[in-house]
Amino acid sequence: MSLAEQIIIISICVLGTILTRFLPFLIFSSKKPTPAYVQYLGKALPSAIFGMLVIYCLKDIRIFKGSHGIPELLSIIFVCILHLWKRQMLVSIAGGTILYMLLIQFVF
């Protein structure tokens, strides 16, 4: 691939990304009131999105191979316990990550 072709491919990646990020703001400008259905989606979507992002992070786990996703499951449970107990974002994240690193480096 020539340099010009590389620049074209990279520009397409940039433009496509910008398009997906800006489109809702361009369609629903702040001058006109946002349709009720979109307002509803704006409120209802986030919880579903965060659930989707958690599964997205875990998508490469193979239940029937390797460590069967056990270190991930244990670490997530630990994150939840820590968070419900202390409600300190950084403590929960650090605790869960350290447990996961210990589990996959020394146990599994």
């Binding site: 992070c57 968070h83 974002m89 996961y100």
Partner: peptide, 14 residues
């Protein structure tokens, strides 16, 4: 795993 842990916390907060 730090990213997974973060999204779990954000999910839980929500």
């Amino acid at each position: 795993f730090v990213m997974t842990a973060m999204f779990v916390v954000i999910f839980l907060e929500q």
